[in-house]
Design a protein around this nucleic acid. Sequence first.
DNA 1: GTAGGGTTAG
Length: 787
Amino acid sequence: MDVRTMGNRYLAQLNQTSLARAVHAHILTSGFNPFPLIINRLIDHYCKSSNIPYARHLFDKIPKPDIVATTTLLSAYSASGNIKLAHQLFNATPLTIRDTVSYNAMITAFSHSHDGHAALQLFVQMKRLGFVPDPFSFSSVLGALSLIADEERHCQQFHCEVLKRGALSGPSVLNALMSCYVSCASSPLVDSCLVMAAARKLFDEAPHGLRDEPSWTTIIAGYVRNGDLVAARELLDGMTDHIAVAWNAMISGYVHRGLYEAAFDLLRRMHSLGIQLDEYTYTSVISAASNAGLFYIGRQVHAYVLRTVVQPSQHFVLSVNNVLITFYTRCGKLVEAKRVFDKMPVKDLVSWNAILSGYVNARRIEEANSIFREMPERSLLTWTVMISGLAQNGFGEEGLKLFNQMKLEGLEPCDYAYAGAIASCSVLGSLDNGQQLHSQIIRLGHDSSLSVGNALITMYARCGLVEAADTVFFTMPYVDSVSWNAMIAALAQHGHGVKAIQLYEQMLKENIFPDRITFLTILSACSHAGLVKEGRHYFDTMRAHYGITPEEDHYSRLIDLLCRAGMFSEAKNVTESMPFEPSAPIWEALLSGCRIHGNTELGIQAAEKLLKLMPQQDGTYISLSNMYATLGQWDEVARVRKLMRERGVKKEPGCSWIEVENMVHVFLVDDAVHPEVHAVYKYLEHLVHEMRKLGYVPDTKYVLHDMESEQKENALSTHSEKLAVVYGIMKIPLGAKIRVFKNLRICGDCHSAFKFISKVVDREIIVRDRKRFHHFRNGECSCGNYW
DNA sequence: GTAGGGTTAG
């Protein structure tokens, strides 16, 4: 049988790899030089059945490959994500056999690998060499243009060229052109409405034959992307055919805007109209449930999917399960999330990243680390999830380490990764590292990134440099509510309550809507500055003006505000009028207010409640026993101490640290570990001598309220923050500020000592404790003793 | 042999 006959007989119906291989083997062994048609069929078959290496093998055997075989193989490489091999193949193709089709395929390959510039360049080259672009060329290159189009000019230029060459012949080109306008409209450099209007005009004026389902979807999704949900909805409602894709775009629009009810409503309508729900619908809806914290709804959707979807595609299984992992972790159901993850027959990077992020954000760092290690592949996002997760949960050192490891492995961190590294510096109070990162960021051009800017504001503030935070905030090209919140919080932490309020008022003037975080921040600003009237006012406007229902943490901040001002009966009123039972944060607020004002009676009540709710929290036992001690109720003191021992509650050891020349020095109470600690004690002795001359009396009352030392009788114990401050004075050049960090609240005696020290040595001392900042200058503290 | 639309992880 000759090859041609064989080809006709088998290859025409070729759909089995075994058959293909038989033919392939015959060609190789028979020594025939078969017709290109047959070779091409074979290559095509291998490509379609994902046997690209076979296809390549065969291809390499052809003495003079034709352009059809080349294009087939090139497209297969591109479809499997192997842009490098596709490009090599194209480059190796002689100019003499190239044609428009092969150029189109290569342009598409670039476009699919998100290299818009390469695609555009190739389009230009092809024209320069005399190849005439056809409608395929335009739809390909316009798709690529969407990746880079930030200028309206670009769109219009291509629009003209398409019209000039009469290429607006099919729905694909029309749609690609519309997509271009739509993605250009998202650029901050253009007037989004104007550009969307251009896209709409194209759509409205196109002959009806050109307007197919994808173009309807493009224009609807365009409005969604550019924030005009009303226009999108009008178009959707005006459609006679119900296309799931368009509905999905609309639903995701509602979800992104936080309009979850509208999203669920649309879902119900889709369902009742009998529109086939698919993985896109489910992912959007489940992500709505996860953003809104609607556990029962999300679980219901999950159950519905399991019940109704038979034989889901692999894509369906992947995307729906991926979003389910996120949903369950966000609802705090890590076990459920892990169950979904473990049951997935195939996992992709998104699945791994989602479960990783779940564990990191649940502060399950050990498990997160092992997931990170055993992941089959990692993306930039993986590293970023891990770095920012570590930072957000207080593991600053680990976060920075991972960031450096990432760079060592040759990965180029993106702006989010930098933001994570900066957040790590915020935790550590490492200004040196933070500033180094900042200069790298400027060099790399990441300084216009929103997340970097927001992280920088927090970093400078948490390192004690409010002014630098301010500079970042005012030089950021774009800001969002997170930036405003961060800057207001910066001012609040440093005791600039009035300035914080002024900034908040300005935020309102600039039509930025405050969110729940804004109110948390503004309430603690008022609390730190003793602005009771203002705080109450803002609390009231929350619901009345902005429709934000005060949550527990808002109430606890309000109560904190009232208690600090000594308004205990008002605080009690609020507690009793709350729509829920007071829980731990509320009692904590009460307790700390009582501590300041020596209100032992209420304080004991609060502490006893707190003891029941959070039996593992060390501070409560200590406060409670101290309060009983001041009343001389030694039996109670003994009871509380015994309870603490029996429950195995460990005290969080107090420690302070200071950065000197890019090195972090850590001190513990009565430290004997730091190599230079003897010199520190000696210098401290000298300082105390000088301080006494100015009237400093060591306040032994605080020894009783001692948060660090077990033995209350040891009146001479030296707190870590004192050691760190003294070390700073010894090591840090005159004129520079001393910045010390402490993991617990600052002790009262240290607080008064630092006022004297700042006067004796004439230096500015900044202490960041668990709650806020204290700036000691010339015998005064910025907190006005409101702490 | 080549083209255009919707989703999920920070």
